[in-house]
């Protein structure tokens, strides 16, 4: 659980970093805000992989 919190924190830090980039506003607002959708999709897929990764580790532990 501790590691999970750490990864979550890392993700928020990453999002924060991206958000804080100069000119970020104009990129995110361009093309009908399509890049906002991109950010959402990336977050979801990242989250899914994180979930699978943790599930994988849990099953590995059970196998031992």
């Amino acid at each position: 659980m501790k590691k999970f919190n750490f990864l979550l924190l890392a993700m928020f830090a990453l999002i924060g970093f991206v958000e804080a980039q100069p000119n970020n506003e104009s990129v995110m607002m361009s093309n009908g805000k399509i890049y906002v959708v991109m950010a959402v999709v990336v977050t979801i897929v990242f989250g899914l992989f994180l979930y699978l990764f943790l599930l994988d580790r849990k099953i590995s532990k059970l196998e031992k």
Binding site: I34, Y35, V37, M38, V41, V42, V45, F46, F49
Partner: peptide, 9 residues
Amino acid sequence: LMYTCTMGF
């Protein structure tokens, strides 16, 4: 998939 979800857009 990270490539897909960024380059895809």
